[in-house]
Amino acid sequence: MIKKDSSNILTIQDLHASINGTEILKGIDFTVRSGEIHAIMGLNGSGKSTLAKVLAGHSAYEVTQGSVLFDDIDLLALPPEERARAGLFLAFQYPIEIPGVANTQFLRLAYNTVQTRRGKEELDPLEFDDFVREKMKMLDMKPDFLDRSVNEGFSGGEKKRNEVLQMALLEPKLSILDETDSGLDIDALKIVAQGVNQIANQNNAMIVVTHYQRLLDYIVPDYVHVMQSGRIVMTGGKELALELETHGYDWISANKQSLAGVSA
């Protein structure tokens, strides 16, 4: 059994997961407490998105070992929609297009589903329209976006903003942002970061997956984890991101030993 600190939102222990029989996650351990922002960095193919999707419950992945507690519930026992309703949110690296389904309809259904779960009032289409437009202003989004099909024909940047908008609507307890900064120009990046910072508070937490230090200028992490071949090989404070920026990932291999054991 896992001992749980009362402020722990996510407790991952020895998590192994595979896809089509190939092991991708090879033992992940870390803990996220409320109010914290964690950054996960690492080269392409190191398993960052896999970790995100396994936490969200994608059926293509099989968890072969380990445990994950979300608050004090066994996250891995829940189907993906229950995880979402419990307050886990994933901003996808590659948001999928859903032709024919209007964004506003999709957003309202998602919003009302989560609201109902929290014992709160649903919003009717008119009320929801006011509510969502307010949030869209914060992210500098055009109103016509509501009538378009979910992600269909969106530019990379529009897709990412749509993810952040959904995060803002659903007010999750734990948000995982998978490379939300990729494909954004610097202005868009600032807007998205601003949005994220408005959502972050002492009762929720964020895991920000990124390649680049530049996002972390705007979203300041409490911890930075570095992933390599399905493991977290190094954990440090926000200065670790700067070290990586200067020295590159090769530097990790050389310094792994000395830094291992820094608490997460």
């Binding site: 999928i96 032709p99 024919g100």
Partner: peptide, 23 residues
């Protein structure tokens, strides 16, 4: 597509119904 819906709390039946109605 179904995973995207379910990650937003929407179950598979509702997701299919939305996609089909759009179609």
């Amino acid at each position: 597509q179904l995973f995207y819906f379910s990650q937003r709390g929407i179950d598979a039946e509702e997701a299919v119904s939305m996609i089909i109605n759009g179609f």
